[in-house]
């Protein structure tokens, strides 16, 4: 099943949304202990701010590895849906991972890209996404045929719901503004990992 046909054809046509708002909307749609992997930076901070869940993993520093980590969780637990949340600058560092996800046809994985065209946490320097690199087009070129830009907030919610219901892999591109995140993730790696493994049922609760 593909996304509905009313999707914007390009990054330019997608509505610029607020990262924290759509992160909250996404988290509100999670009903089945889905795993969520937060990449670095403000994407991560707003996932933390949207309400901590035992099934959330918060990456710290390994820029670009949210999709691979999500892929690994998806391989280990094929019956659980997994969402990898990643920024545009981050995914630009690891575009090959999109080809890997496509080649493996990882059914239980959804990739959500937060694209503000900038390296916001380091001062808002322009990213290549603001100069013509279209992550959805790149994803399709990698073989992720179920990739689309979210037209607006309600389209985003529909796409998340669809990706949680039907086989993936999916990629949802989101244009976002440059609002500051609402909170900052606590930087305590062993505790973040321990909570996540208990949340996934790998360690006893």
């Amino acid at each position: 099943m593909a996304f509905p046909p009313n999707q914007p054809v390009s990054r330019e046509q997608a509505k610029v949304m607020n990262r924290f708002d759509i992160t909250k909307r996404m988290v509100a749609l999670l009903r089945n202990e889905e795993a969520v992997i937060g990449g670095i930076g403000y994407t991560n901070f707003d996932l933390w701010g949207a309400g901590q869940r035992p099934q959330n993993f918060y990456m710290l520093g390994s820029m670009g590895l949210a999709v691979p980590i999500g892929m690994g969780v998806a391989l280990a637990q094929p019956r659980r849906k997994v969402i990898a949340l990643e920024g545009d600058g981050s995914i630009l560092m690891e575009l090959g991972s999109l080809a890997t996800v496509a080649a493996r046809k990882q059914k239980n994985l959804t990739v959500v890209i937060m694209d503000n065209g900038a390296y916001q946490i380091t001062g808002g320097q322009t990213a290549l996404t603001a100069e013509g690199a279209d992550i959805v087009a790149i994803a399709k070129g990698c073989g992720l045929t179920q990739s689309a830009w979210a037209a607006d907030e309600s389209a985003f919610e529909e796409m998340i719901a669809l990706s949680l219901r039907e086989d993936g892999p999916w990629l949802i591109g989101c244009r976002i503004d440059s609002a500051k995140p609402v909170e900052t993730t606590e930087r305590d790696p062993p505790i973040l990992k321990d909570r996540f493994m208990r949340g996934l049922g790998v360690k006893g609760s």
């Binding site: 795993a35 992997i37 993993f57 390994s62 670009g64 590895l65 999709v67 691979p68 980590i69 999500g70 892929m71 690994g72 969780v73 998806a74 391989l75 280990a76 637990q77 659980r80 690891e94 575009l95 090959g96 991972s97 080809a99 890997t100 080649a103 493996r104 990992k193 996540f196 493994m197 996934l200 049922g201 790998v202």
Partner: peptide, 23 residues
């Protein structure tokens, strides 16, 4: 289950995720 990845760090990330998922 064996497959090539595009970069070594991608493989490290996949394997880290797999470990946390119990594999």
């Amino acid at each position: 289950t064996a497959f090539a990845v595009a970069r070594e760090e991608e493989g490290l990330g996949i394997n880290a995720g797999a470990w946390m998922g119990g594999r």
